[in-house]
Simulated scan of single mutants.
Amino acid sequence: MSNQFSGVGNLGQAPVLRTVQVDGEDRSVADLRVYFDRSVPQDDGSFEDEGGFWLSVSVWGARAESAVKVLRKGARIQVDGQLREESWEDAEGAEHRELRLTASRIGIDPVCIESITYRPRTGAPTEMPSDPGEE
């Protein structure tokens, strides 16, 4: 049985970036809260909202750092990744469980993007091949 998940939803808040120690190394992780709606197509071509659910999402490494720079509350995104259950005890000793998605890919709905800043490429530029018809 696979634990792969793919869904489209909206960010409930801006991503939060943290640094954690993993095997003695500092790693970046961004925490997201995403609401995945469940719209069901109707016979007349419209869609009816049948509720949805909130899911906590973790994004690691360079993707985490980019997510914090680009994503804003309300952004419509597609998230692919693996589901896992986390459990912990709070300060009062009560046990908690949460389903969390570790994202392997995040796609942004272009309508939600206000601006994009491109970073310069590193390394030597590549030349475009010349057109054989120009000789």
Rank of each mutant, 00 (worst) to 15 (best):
Y35W: 13
D31Q: 13
L101P: 05
G133E: 15
A62S: 14
T19H: 12
L17W: 10
A94H: 14
R105P: 03
Y35N: 11
V16Y: 06
V20D: 10
S104Q: 07
P110T: 01
M1Y: 11
T102C: 02
E65G: 06
R100N: 01
P110R: 01
V111Q: 11
Y35L: 13
V111R: 14
R72P: 03
R33L: 10
W60D: 10
S46M: 07
R119A: 15
G93E: 08
D23L: 13
E85Q: 08
A64G: 06
E114T: 02
V79L: 01
L17Y: 11
G12R: 07
V79G: 02
V40D: 07
S104V: 05
Q21C: 07
G51K: 09
A75P: 05
V16T: 14
G52E: 07
M128V: 15
G123N: 06
A30T: 08
G81A: 05
S56N: 14
D131F: 00
V79D: 01
A91H: 11
P125C: 08
A30I: 04
A75K: 06
G9M: 01
E114C: 00
R63I: 03
E89T: 09
V70N: 06
T102K: 05
I116F: 04
W60K: 10
F53R: 12
K69Y: 03
H96V: 01
R119S: 15
D109T: 05
D90Y: 00
I106S: 03
D49W: 07
